[in-house]
């Protein structure tokens, strides 16, 4: 159907719908009046924002800062950048201790991580109506209405607290680890 030049039957249909809506909807009637007198529509009201997806950019600085800390204490980036296939499990195990100990220290020092669910994994639990789907993900036979009863497969993790070091204004967070040159 050509929207800008509708045919007669389409125009009849629009006229009938418009007739009823003008009677019932004052705002619509106002719009028709403005259209008839040739006045431009008012700008969209601020409480009706343009329809774009509600996504936000996260700050890369904090992510780079955390990576830098993991590298500094636990050689995390070094570890990820290595080709592990070239080494034996024993060699990788030795390095893993460095990474584990250091990264764990970072996580413990700067974050407070706690399980989402206090129950043991494998326990049966019941979710009442209104549970937060962001903290509990349902899997498997997801049908019917809450309360849902199921088995806890993973306790989940949640950050209870995070305190990263404050960064100086001019600090370049992209440098995860400076090159070292010994003189």
């Amino acid at each position: 159907m050509n929207v800008s030049q509708p045919n007669f039957s389409a125009r009849l249909s629009v006229a009938l719908r418009a007739f009823w809506r003008i009677l019932n909807d004052a705002a619509f009637a106002g719009g028709v009046l403005r259209l008839e007198s040739g006045v431009a529509a008012p700008p969209a009201l601020p409480d009706e924002p343009a329809k774009s997806a509600p996504l936000r950019e996260t700050s890369p600085d904090a992510a780079m800062q955390l990576l830098a800390l993991l590298q500094q204490e636990g050689r995390f980036v070094d570890f990820l950048e290595e080709n592990v296939t070239a080494y034996s499990d024993a060699e990788i195990g030795g390095a893993a201790r460095v990474v584990h100990e250091g990264c764990r220290k970072v996580v413990r020092d700067y974050l407070k991580i706690e399980p989402v669910r206090a129950e043991n994994e494998g326990a049966r639990l019941t979710l009442a109506a209104g549970f937060d789907p962001a903290t509990v993900r349902l899997t498997g036979n997801v049908v019917g209405q809450p309360p849902f009863t199921g088995t806890l497969m993973h306790r989940g993790w949640r950050v209870a607290q995070i305190t990263l070091p404050k960064l100086a204004d001019g600090h370049d967070a992209r440098v995860l680890a400076p090159a070292e040159v010994e003189l």
Binding site: Q65, A68, L69, Q72, P165, K166, L167, A168, G170, H171, D172, P178
Partner: peptide
């Protein structure tokens, strides 16, 4: 508060 890395204060 003290510098813990260049430019980072904790």
């Amino acid at each position: 508060p003290q510098l813990t890395a260049p430019g980072a204060v904790e």
